[in-house]
Amino acid sequence: MKAFFGKLAAMAALALAVPATASPAPVPDTVPIAMLVDLSSGQVLFARNADRRFVPASITKAMTVYTAFDLLARGKLQPEQSFTFSETAAEEWRRTGSTMFLEPGDETTVRNLLLGVTTVSANDGAIVLAEGAAGSVARWLELMNANARRLGMTQSHFGTPNGFPDGARTFTTARDLVTLGRALTLEHAELYQSYFGRRGLVTNGFAQSNHDPLTGRVAGADGIKTGFTRQAGNGFLGSAERDGRRLVLVVAGVAEQDDRDDAARALMEWGFATFTSRQLFGKGATVGEAQVQDGTSDTVKLVAASPIRFAMPRATDRPVKLSVRYEGPLRAPIAAGEAVAELQISVEGMEPSLVPLLAAEPVERAGFLGRIANALKGLLS
């Protein structure tokens, strides 16, 4: 299949004014890996070694949480279900590293386990959740890695639910973590708001603080997950939303925690201050259309899955190019709401970004006579 270019809606064909220069990002050399992305457009605002593999440490727990969110959304897990901290699991994980201070035999709800993982990075909580929801850690890891593949995290693998050192079997990249951040914040927005963004938590009588360097310190910040081991250094997957714009960042491989925290705060503030944002399409707006083969219709309208915005530095102007891309022609049947194409946003000096587009309506497969008519029409055209 080759890439097809769909027809753009008239309003999208206009040239947009985009500045050519921007102030440099405040990311010191002590931060070897960093990335900042505007999720509403998919634009990369800053990248340093975005595709270098590294050990994520407790940032791994973001995938454990996403896996739980997916099960909750599909009704295969319930917030008030209770799971037990087994004697076997307790032998390895009782008060090991970051903890909820669970004791052997303690029963804890899924809701409290998730809060323990998201707020105080509970290693024990992640294990109890994995064993309880999937029957074993091994089966939970299968779910985590299947989700990573489905999301397109091609440079990631998870060998543990909590990121505890495992001989580097667990690895990822900044680009893959941004993909995970997008999935957490956009696919499961309500669950994300319920479980992330807390400054502290009391578990089993112990009060603990969240080490997230953004939440409560940077306007609009609400997560996501820190990580640290001696092997990995200090890392962070973070997000903040202001005025309908959500930015996600990664900093990783940083020797000192203070350097990680300062860099994360400075990079997020730089992203909001240096780039302004313009909405191109509202949620559900028609962006263009794509050709359909063997369908009851020759074309299908393409709509925005969520508001599509474009980030632009505050400086001089130059044009932005928009194009609809898909592997095609699309083959019927097509379901309404199915992701079938992408809007590519291109500007000189920045990575092209791709935003998913959905089929506005269903297109059924044509009957035998309809397919013959379509074939004749194709020959004549």
Rank of each mutant, 00 (worst) to 15 (best):
T185S: 15
E92S: 11
V65P: 05
A138M: 14
Q81Y: 00
Q344I: 05
I308Y: 05
M268E: 00
P19W: 12
N112A: 08
R199T: 15
G349C: 11
E269T: 15
A68R: 07
P19E: 15
Q231K: 07
D259R: 07
L141E: 12
G367M: 14
D261C: 00
E87D: 00
Q279V: 15
P213H: 04
A255R: 14
F236P: 05
K76D: 05
F196W: 11
P307A: 14
S23V: 12
R230P: 02
A133Q: 05
L77M: 04
S136P: 12
S58P: 03
R111A: 13
W140S: 10
T88G: 01
Y326V: 01
R182V: 05
E351H: 15
D317V: 13
K377C: 03
W140D: 07
A366C: 13
R217H: 14
E348M: 13
V55N: 08
A10G: 10
A252G: 08
T21K: 14
M35Y: 09
G337S: 00
T60W: 06
S98T: 06
P213N: 01
I224C: 07
F206W: 13
A10C: 04
T274Q: 15
P165V: 08
V355R: 10
Q208E: 09
R245A: 03
D38A: 12
L376I: 12
G132Y: 03
R175W: 07
S194G: 13
A10D: 10
A146G: 08
G233H: 02
G125V: 00
